[in-house]
Design a protein around this nucleic acid. Structure first.
Length: 894
RNA sequence: GGGCGGAUAGCUCAGUUGGGAGAGCAUCGGCCUUACAAGCCGAGGGUCACAGGUUCAAGCCCUGUUCCGCCUACCA
């Protein structure tokens, strides 16, 4: 027997590298495009090509990997589609920053050259995150990796755009959009992050032309007044009911602007006077449309005041604000300034304050698409789990607004629209058109804008499968089985995939959406670079191993709750991984030379050669198998992890292995040894299979060392699915084992509490009125003797109370541990008193129930019966302890 | 403004039809027992945020309150 079969401590690094290489070389992650097996598919939420693996990715992909590996073990044909997204703005930012270091801008290069530079950048760094996912153990079908800018996916994007345009679901128009003056592009509403901030509310007097009074308006952005084209009041506002003036003079600009009446104006806010800037505020824009007001753009796309801003031209928008305020003060038109809490929109990419800006952009008409997406969830075609997110989904979908999809950047899918230089007609087409559809002119200019990255991500579940081609892959794997994601991209991505999937595939993109938590730091704060509380998953992996890290994520991934990550927690689960390693090491010392065949499972409850621990652990394994598959199928990942933890450590290691040690050392004969070895082999084998989805590396390593196994553990048969499998749940074995465990624990408790050295062998005797219990302890006396460290263990039917003994009550039996010469009566009485007090407490709550006639009359019989039994048991135990306490006290006095 | 979630042991959190308050870590005591000191054995520790209500019975269901977190919104 060699003990160097496995190293003493688990060293993850080498193991992980080896198996990662093996899995890839053997193509174990690849899906079959056509198969008789059940299909299971997941599309990865594509990380940004610029991204590096963070905790969110780690959790997200660990959960997906668990599902994929689990389904493979269950025999499914699994496709986990990997890929990255081109992240238009983010990627272009990165490359432009590089250019800036050389003192260049994108305009120096021109469109073509910039795009080329981005592709080069991608070649160089784009696979970073993919490699990091591989280190995490992600079992994606890597050969099928997709990128949103790939030829095929670009075709899909183009086709979707053209069809939606032809159906009237895409249009171009002049509207107020969110403009980032730093990124110099429009953004969708979702891409604006709102931050509460302390601002100021300025009350400004707009005088009447006759200089007799005027209307006071309130604003947080005084610089926009330069573009005001009206003042609005509510038609129902009595303060303005008798107003005869129909215009005011716009201060600083000395422009006469009309007073309009519009229901939009909130009479309770400020003076009830609202300045109207149609070019720089979405509501004002609407008012402008209703009252036919001109829109004057005073803030340029670069955030600098335009020539329309008069003497303020050329100022930065924030400097202009200060100047405008100063100028108003000078003219005594600034009536009041008050602090004002409001939320400011910022660019989600660069955090620059967003400028609402009038601009010609492309939009998707979302409502008709959203209606069907709502219906799909209502009807259960797609389930959102946990269901609490359904409300959020409905709420957003029902209030959906048109989606601005054009971006004024170069990196992305260029919009396939051409404007005629002669008649201004727009031609939208799959292929580059030669002539204008309306006038036939050849003077066509292509739209320079590109599409929002999320437009292409919305097609991900079918574009990655080959659409618009009618591929086998698409037929086999669409709709996908489940989408795993965090809630922060529920609208960005999930909702839009639902809309596009249903529209173009006539079927939902996924049957389930599992929404998991966000990973936070130890204190529950969101991890962010600026806070400096980021934990790098790769550092954690280096330090503790991938398996420990994955197990930690899984154990904390309870539904509807954030994961608080700290290295200390990972350390705890590294201990678990190491425990498993050592249990395997110990087991292999005994079974490595045995002959076992995974296909032939002759073990059954009825096998007489099996010992009590054998039957017990098989029973527990059977229960574990059921609970693990139930948990994983209902996305209760943390339950699967904790059940596995409990089983491995506290059932398999603490009790089973300890109990069968003498058997393995041959103390009970050859037959018993062979039987236990067979069980040990089976339990270890099935346990690593059950653990494999969560901790793939160590389980593959152990699998490879187990006799009778072939190939990768990924090709193993899930314990519940083995042919000819017989149920192993054995209530007798469980109750007998419980009795044995109780007895041992009782004796150990005495040893611990009385401060008796573990090395000192003790003598114990047991008494009971219950012959069945006595039979059980008699039969398994050797286990008790061994694990409680006794040199003598007697069944005592005399009923006598020995003198110098400590006592315990276990499963209704009285155990005496002889402590001749060692006993401390004082200590023993304290110990017994403590126990009695504890029982008394329990008895008060129980007797309250039993004294309650309503309880006896109305509670189900089963419940009453349980309480009665418990009561009787406790009373009996209390009496036994009490009479012994009296005995000890008496002895003490003697 | 609307919505959602959370409050359970010192810490982090489980707790699925209402009937035993649990785990991991930390703490305390004892152990180099030939798989594992990253270990083994034993122990202590909770008014389940607060106030009501429904029920024979509430951590769980209902109402209200406080505190914390998040999402969402065109509140000038």
């Amino acid at each position: 027997m060699s003990s160097d079969l496995l190293d003493k401590g688990y060293e993850p690094k080498a193991v992980e590298e080896r198996w990662n290489r093996f899995w890839l070389e053997e193509n174990l992650f690849s899906a079959d495009a056509v198969s008789d097996q059940k299909s299971f598919s997941i599309v990865i939420p594509p990380p940004n090509v610029t991204g590096v693996l963070h905790m969110g990715h780690a959790l997200n992909n660990t959960l997906q990997d668990i599902l994929c590996r689990y389904r493979r073990l269950r025999g499914d044909n699994v496709l986990w589609m990997p890929g990255t997204d081109h992240a238009g703005i983010a990627t272009q930012n990165v490359v432009e920053k590089e250019l800036a270091r050389e003192g260049k801008t994108r305009h120096d290069l021109g469109r073509e050259a910039l795009i080329e530079a981005v592709w080069e950048w991608r070649e160089k760094y784009g696979s970073a995150i993919i490699n990091q996912l591989k280190r995490l153990g992600a079992s994606c079908d890597w050969d099928r990796e997709r990128f949103t800018m790939d030829e095929g996916l670009s075709q899909a994007v183009r086709k979707v755009f053209v069809e939606l345009y032809e159906e009237g679901l895409i249009y171009k128009g002049n509207y107020i959009i969110n403009w980032c003056p730093r990124c110099l592009t429009a953004l969708a509403d979702l891409e604006v992050e709102h931050e509460e901030s302390e601002g100021r509310l300025y009350h400004i007097l707009y005088p009447f032309p006759n200089q007799k009074g005027g209307i006071v308006v309130a604003t947080t952005r005084p610089e926009t007044m330069l573009g005001d084209t009206a003042v609005a009041v509510n038609p129902d506002d009595e303060r303005y009911a008798d107003l005869t003036e129909d215009s005011v003079i716009l201060p600083l600009m000395n422009r006469k602007i009309p007073v309009v009446r519009d229901k939009y104006v909130d009479m309770s806010f400020g003076t009830g006077g609202l300045k109207v800037t149609p070019a720089h505020d979405p509501n004002d824009f609407e008012i402008g449309v209703r009252h036919n007001l001109p829109a004057i753009k005073v803030i340029g796309d670069d955030g600098i005041m335009t020539s329309e801003a008069g003497r303020f031209q050329g100022l930065d928008r924030f400097k202009c604000r200060a100047q405008v305020v100063k100028a108003l003060e000078k003219e005594n038109l600034l009536k009041q300034v008050e602090p004002h809490q409001h939320s400011v929109g910022c660019c989600y990419r660069c955090n620059t304050v967003i400028e609402p800006n009038l601009s010609k952009q492309w939009f998707v008409k979302a409502k008709p698409l959203a209606d069907k997406a709502i219906e799909a969830v209502e009807s259960g075609k797609t389930r959102i789990i946990p269901t609490t997110w359904e409300n959020t989904y409905y709420d957003w979908m029902r209030n959906i607004k048109d989606w601005c999809i054009s971006r004024q950047i170069w990196w992305g899918h260029q919009i396939p629209a051409w404007t005629c230089g002669d008649c201004e007609e727009i031609t939208v087409s799959m292929d580059t058109p030669e002539t204008c559809v309306k006038c036939g002119s050849k003077n066509l200019v292509r739209e320079t804008d590109v599409l929002d990255t999320w437009f292409s991500s919305a097609l991900w579940p079918f574009s990655t499968l080959g659409w618009p081609e009618k591929t086998e892959l698409l037929k086999t794997f669409y709709p996908t089985s489940v989408l795993v994601t965090a809630f922060d991209i529920l609208f960005f991505w999930v909702a839009r995939m639902m809309m596009m999937g249903i529209h173009f595939m006539k079927d939902v993109p996924f049957k389930d959406v599992y929404i998991h938590a966000i990973v936070r730091d130890e204190e529950g704060k969101k991890m962010s670079k600026s806070t400096g509380n980021v934990i790098d998953p790769l550092v954690v992996i280096d330090q503790y191993g991938t398996d420990a890290f994955r197990f930690t994520l899984t154990a904390f991934a309870a539904q509807g709750r954030d994961v608080r990550m700290s290295e200390k927690r990972v350390e705890g689960y590294r201990h678990f991984v190491n425990k498993l390693w050592n249990a395997a090491r110990f087991s292999l010392m005994h079974i490595q030379d045995g002959e076992f065949d995974a296909a032939e499972d002759s073990i059954s409850r009825e096998n007489e050669r099996l010992s009590l621990p054998d039957r017990w652990i098989l029973s527990k394994l059977d229960r574990l198998t059921t609970s693990v598959s139930d948990s994983l199928e209902t996305y209760h990942f943390n339950e699967a992890a904790s059940n596995l933890y409990q089983f491995v450590w506290h059932e398999f290691c603490d009790w089973y292995l300890e109990a069968i040690k003498p058997v393995l050392y041959g103390k009970h004969g050859e037959e018993a040894m062979q039987a236990s070895k067979h069980v040990l082999w089976k339990v270890l084998k099935d346990t690593v299979i059950l653990l494999h989805p969560i901790i793939p590396f160590i389980t593959e390593e152990i699998w490879s060392k187990l006799p009778g196994t072939k190939g990768s553990i990924m090709q193993a048969v899930f314990p519940g699915d083995q042919p000819g499998r017989r149920p192993m749940i054995d209530p007798d074995a469980e109750s007998h084992m419980a009795l044995v465990v109780d007895t041992i624990t009782g004796i150990r408790n005495i040893r611990g509490e009385m401060g008796i050295s573990p090395s000192m062998a003790l003598s114990a005797r047991i008494q009971s009125d219950n012959p069945e219990s006595l039979n059980v302890v008699r039969e398994y006396a050797s286990i008790i003797k061994n694990l409680a460290r006794l040199n003598e263990f007697m069944i005592d039917e005399s009923g006598e109370k020995p003198k110098s003994a400590a006592m315990a009550v276990a499963s209704g039996m009285v155990i005496y541990v002889d402590l001749e010469g060692v006993i401390d009566f004082e200590k023993e009485s304290l110990r017994l008193e403590k126990e009695i007090t504890k029982i008394a407490k329990e008895l008060t709550t129980i007797s309250k129930k039993l004294n309650n006639e309503d309880f006896l009359a109305k509670a189900p019989d089963e419940v009453v019966q349980n309480v009665r039994e418990k009561n009787a048991g406790l009373i009996e135990k209390q009496q036994k302890l009490q009479s012994n306490l009296e005995r000890v006290r008496k002895l003490h006095e003697d």
